[in-house]
Design a protein around this nucleic acid. Structure first.
Lengths: 247, 247
DNA sequence: CGGTTGCGAGAGCACTGCTCTCGCTTGAGA
DNA sequence: TCTCAAGCGAGAGCAGTGCTCTCGCAACCG
């Protein structure tokens, strides 16, 4: 149980939290590579060996921070989504995307921890899987609602992808057509590509107005999963009404 | 000059290369975080302090590896592109995307070095900028050809993005319409999102047939920048001819 | 040929993750 | 209520790290 049965158990919870808090502070200040167990212990007024009573290794501390980061991100996204609960799918889609980006900009090192290159030879333990999927599940819900409502229109899948798409559909959203789920997974990964490029400096000297750029790109991603603007509802198009330039 | 004026200069070049080679080997085996100057020196039969004659710090060694990695990736992409030089834009687009993915899978730690989270508080020096842009320039060329040939069709830009799109266009490809350049930059980032998710384990237990999935997603990215399949040429659509599901 | 410069070796500093042992304190069972 | 195992913090210590400094030797330039 998580309710402390005694002062000792309560203290353990508090110290564990204090360690994670201090670690998070150092993470935010210097990044994961410079996170030092000894420095955390020092700051907390304990000796480094005592810290090993709470986390068996540095990697375990990092794993705990990773799970917390996934949860924090998921909570941000869900909170933003709830605020826009009454809006249409496109608006909700954009809201969630922008919430994810906002969280990433506010917690760059934590974002790098979960969506950047994994630390040393780090293999995500199963315990992180559930926390990691919260944003994805949110996006699925939005698209599911759109599917139930105005409907979605997507290009046909190539034959070679059909088995995979069927499997994907069964695993993630059996009630959605395979091409929708496939497009959704792609859009999910692509959104983090946009955020990562912005956060990790790939957009330096390239994109200036990153907020506007992301808003537009996120909306396009929404189109890619079949979400349509209200005025487009029922036309079945995903675009193509814009400029057309010949040779 | 890069031509050695004496035995000393030649030796310096050779030792520098040997250090980078050994560092790359350790990078491939253990990842950037466990790359140790002392271990590199040990393996080369020198003492660690001698290594500082060639690289003033560990970060400088990493920077050299980063530049080399960008160059290696760019070369792979360009080589693949040349092999498909006679094909149409979509085929060439797909070829380049798959070459980038192939290089990433073959050199995961080097990929993580350049497109994963940047090391410590690492800020890419200007020297990396040129090497980093090779893949992007390749993609611009492909889209430029498509633009000169069969033409591209893209959705109109929202007003808020027009200044940024104009700026982007002037910087990257003044001969392309702003909406094309904007879509291209987005597709560029999104492609690396797909690759990163596959490489860093985000697709574990989600996507099984990653090759087919990536092929499809990359083709969709091509559509997103206005590339059309031969049979679609001239119709002006970017999709939307597939399934349509109502409530 | 002499002096400057580049280079390798070694010692050393401050730091890291981690282990082990030693006592003190706590809390649960007899 | 008393006892004794378990939990915990402190300290020392090990192997390893990035990096600095000094010292000689060798190579190169004028």
């Amino acid at each position: 149980m998580s309710t402390a049965r005694g002062a000792r158990a309560r203290a353990r919870i508090e110290v564990t939290a204090a360690i994670k808090d201090e670690a998070r502070r150092q993470l935010a200040k210097e990044g994961a590579a410079k996170l030092s167990l000894r420095a955390v212990a020092r700051e907390l007024g304990m000796v480094s060996s005592a810290l090993y009573r709470y986390f068996p290794s540095r990697d375990d501390l990092l794993t705990a921070l990773i799970i917390d980061a996934y949860d924090s991100l998921g909570e941000s996204a869900e909170a933003a989504h709830e605020k826009a609960a009454d809006a249409g799918p496109i608006r909700r889609w954009a809201t969630v995307c922008e919430a994810v980006r906002g969280w990433a900009l506010a917690h760059p090192h934590e974002y790098a921890l979960i969506y950047g290159s994994p630390v040393p030879g780090y293999a995500a333990p199963d315990s992180t899987v559930r926390a990691a999927s919260r944003v994805g599940l949110l996006l699925i819900d939005i698209v599911r609602d759109a599917h139930r409502g105005v409907g979605v229109a997507l290009p046909r899948l190539p034959a070679e992808l059909k088995p995979e798409a069927r499997r994907l559909g069964q695993d993630l959203a059996p009630d959605l057509p395979p091409e929708v789920v496939t497009a959704l997974v792609a859009a999910w990964a692509q959104m983090f590509g946009l955020i990562g490029f912005e956060l990790f400096g790939q957009f330096n000297r390239v994109v200036e107005d990153r907020e506007a750029f992301f808003r537009h790109a996120a909306a396009q991603l929404g189109h890619g999963v079949g979400l349509v603007f209200p005025q487009d509802a029922g036309t079945g198009g995903t675009g193509g009404s814009g400029s057309r330039s010949g040779p």
